[in-house]
Design a binder for these strands. Sequence first.
DNA 1: CTGTGTGAAGTTTTTCACAGCT
DNA 2: AGCTGTGAAAAACTTCACACAG
Lengths: 243, 243
Amino acid sequence: MNEERALPIDSLDATEMPDGLPRQEPVAAVRPSQVADRQLPEATLSRLTGYLRVLTSLQADGQHSASSGVLAEAAGVNPAIVRKDLSLLGSYGTRGVGYVVSELSQHISKALGLTQEWRVAIIGAGNLGRALAGYGGFRNRGFDVVALIDADPQLVGQRIGELVISDGTDLAAVIARDQANMVVLAVPAAAAQPLCDELVKCGISSILSFAPVPLQVPAGVHLRKVDLATELQILAYHAQDVD
Amino acid sequence: MNEERALPIDSLDATEMPDGLPRQEPVAAVRPSQVADRQLPEATLSRLTGYLRVLTSLQADGQHSASSGVLAEAAGVNPAIVRKDLSLLGSYGTRGVGYVVSELSQHISKALGLTQEWRVAIIGAGNLGRALAGYGGFRNRGFDVVALIDADPQLVGQRIGELVISDGTDLAAVIARDQANMVVLAVPAAAAQPLCDELVKCGISSILSFAPVPLQVPAGVHLRKVDLATELQILAYHAQDVD
DNA sequence: CTGTGTGAAGTTTTTCACAGCT
DNA sequence: AGCTGTGAAAAACTTCACACAG
């Protein structure tokens, strides 16, 4: 298997959906005995995924170890922050040497929760939903797309790659049948919030939405948003003075 | 659709690595005379796009004005930060009342550079590229998709919606013909960097990449990245303790 | 009185810089 | 000598809280 990917760049920002309310305490009670695995800063988190990609490439290249400097350059960040990020997972580096590629890769995967199986249901079999269903980048990274769902009877039953579009009118049943534990929402804006509510009722607590609307989810449900128009708008802003 | 590519870790600082400075764009030496329009914080920027969306729907609802509280709730943020963000554009609110929807909408659009025409070329007519070409959310927001480009002769000439896939072997010609000033890269990982370089040569300075690789671009070129796998990985992390 | 605009306080994240392993 | 791990300083960003305009 020579699956390979290369370095990340510095995926910043991204749209950030807050958990909703101005909560005060996230649930206190830190576990001092446990490694401080939990509660990695959001910023660290997105860099970690980048390091992981770099490490995968390095591993494919047969590199045994790498210093924070090398990782930093490949990931497009500052070496100090690489060390700080990694030290949050525990200290797995060797002074004077760096980090053992395979080992670090393991640790990060574990910290990110990638060792467990993630079963993704894609809701919305329109252009985007179908494109996502065919995207190899998910499966390669441990995310198994187990269902492609739409409420349109015209689409139900149609075959897309290895998937057959399931009937979304009984969402709970499909989610349960395919044992999805994560959902990608690729539906029109108007449909997003109602679906979101329904998903929460089904027990889904991780949702990646492509719908260009702010969604409200109860605390405890994790929602991330990818907003294509927003990305272009931000580019437009930056491009103004350059063009 | 997995492409791979042995990454040239050792040769990655070709383009933009600074000579020793903190990789920033020191281009501007602070222009006090210039309006403080430029240089909106990145965080503010992504919220502004959110407000814009909220305003659009308020406008459609016939609302004449809205307070920071209303905007904040709809956008899922804190009212104070709405006021702070908006005050960075200048003070367009009325004390005791709020903001005039249509007016504010204008101001934000202008600040984001959305008043000019943006002509987007999508490179890569695979699943994702085609899906993006058919995505209405771009045009609605002032981004005109003027070309869908691929180098595969099998695809060239094929019609997708209102677009005909253009031949990417002479990228410069297509970009020039269609007068694109922004590019969306929806190509396999291996193709991304070379294309990126070529685009820069064509004078493109705003690129939105979906390729899961870090891309190097010279200073002055704006690159944003959307990484689907990263999003799922971050969700996975958060979901660990919940599931 | 209502709701903006904003200094000041608070919080989070990044960078610096260096002691201390290997 | 080289590079990690980390306090401490700096910067960025958010929230508070209140004077004051309408």
